[in-house]
Design a protein around this nucleic acid. Structure first.
Lengths: 153, 153
DNA sequence: TCGTACCGTTCTAAAATTGAACTGTCAAAT
DNA sequence: ATTTGACAGTTCAATTTTAGAACGGTACGA
């Protein structure tokens, strides 16, 4: 998770990627849609290209112009986007309701995203999940008072 | 999505919440697990409490001490967490492999999270989803060259 | 020739973050 | 009785990031 946050964990990157999913491709498009400063936009696009989330494709020579296109790695961010949108729709709406609805072309209905278990297909919740650290993982956090009691014993 | 990012869209907040899901509850626990500066940690915890993601519960008087517990609103961030973790596991692993495995208590198996359509249960991908703006939504972005051509016509 | 679209870069001021030290209460150890 | 350490912050100077605005350069159409 820390590594993912290293890629998309700042105030603008996720919004830039949202525009990608909404079909933005060019510098000016991002800039006017988001109101981000041109400086930061250039910076962030470079970073995303370096990290393999976007690809920079020339679409004309002289002056050189490029479009920024999602790679597969970038497209794979879709569940994150949907999860963010859905949480906002659930907990941060105002009187006007949610700004967008999503239609699933396969079944033709308006839907919400649901996160399920890859093995049994049941919806997931935090309490039903047991975490198993693997070698190399950061040691688990101990409850401080438990810690003290154990040392005392 | 912008509103969700307003809540969790900075370099530390998501990591703090990860620790909450891993059972951290107290200031010192967060601080030593993350190496965040105490200043920022205090700031972020306050913000999360203000936004209703965490609740501040006293667990002793004199000196006053509190634990930070996820509210339902906070627990509902779980799909976002899992989506972030899974993307990292897929695209950002090094030789040591993924740091954690997740077991689904209901079915007893190690699993990955999958995002599916609430209506038909099929896995989602960006291309299968059609977006429908609702009144009040920001106007959709036009492709710049299309825009020009239309004005020219 | 002028205005405009496009894609950046450069610069300074403002804001956020870091790093380190400091405050203060209480419990346990010496 | 005094020291030590856990705990939960607050304060402050130094550094890093971000915002805001202007500037540079190519090309196209009127």
């Amino acid at each position: 998770m820390a590594r993912t946050i290293g890629v998309i964990g700042d105030r603008w990157t996720l919004l830039i990627l949202r525009e990608c999913f909404l079909r933005a491709r060019r510098f000016e498009g991002f800039q006017s849609a988001l109101g981000i400063t041109r400086h930061l936009l250039a910076e962030r696009l470079k970073k995303l290209v370096r990290q393999g989330v976007l690809r920079r494709i020339p679409y004309q020579e002289s002056p050189k112009r490029h479009e920024y296109i999602l790679t597969q790695k970038g497209l794979d961010l879709y569940p994150i986007m949907m999860a963010l949108v859905h949480w906002g729709d659930t907990h941060m709406v105002d009187e006007r309701g949610r700004p967008l609805l999503h239609e699933h072309r396969k079944c033709g209905k308006m839907f919400d995203p649901v996160m399920v278990c890859s093995e049994c297909g049941e919806p997931l919740s935090a309490k039903e999940v047991q975490v198993h650290p693997r070698p190399g993982a950061r040691p688990a956090l101990e409850n401080a008072s438990l810690e003290r009691r154990r040392q005392a014993a």
